[in-house]
């Protein structure tokens, strides 16, 4: 997939947060921390996105330890691939942006 569509900011940060398994609230905290408070995922948005990502097979919900009620989301191999490709795409955006702006100055 050389021309995979861009991820939304929410999707990108959710996948990034799940490089380590986390539960829903943990994803919200990690995202806020990584973006230094800029990106705040609202719970309803996050819930919808997590369900969509599970359907796509980019993440899975797994029971952690002995407590079966305590479930965490885990990034799959497929999800990792998507993330790697997105970082490449973002690099291109930033490089092009910087190159054009440098010429300006």
């Amino acid at each position: 997939m050389p021309n995979a569509p861009a991820l939304t900011e929410a999707t990108y940060y959710i996948l990034l947060s799940l490089y380590k398994p986390r539960h829903g609230y943990g994803i919200m905290q990690q995202t806020e921390e990584m973006s230094r408070g800029r990106v705040r995922l609202a719970a309803g948005t996050l819930y919808g996105a997590l369900n969509a990502l599970c359907d796509k097979g980019w993440i899975v919900l797994k029971s952690m330890g002995d407590d079966t009620r305590r479930k965490e989301y885990v990034l799959t191999e497929k999800g990792k691939e998507v993330l790697v490709r997105e970082v490449e795409r973002l690099k291109e955006l930033v490089q092009n942006g910087e190159a054009v702006l440098r010429e300006e100055m």
């Binding site: 939304t8 929410a10 705040r40 995922l41 609202a42 719970a43 309803g44 948005t45 996105a49």
Partner: peptide, 10 residues
């Protein structure tokens, strides 16, 4: 802060 939705899609 408490919001239910944080992007246009949702």
């Amino acid at each position: 802060v408490f919001d239910l939705y944080s992007d246009i899609d949702s």
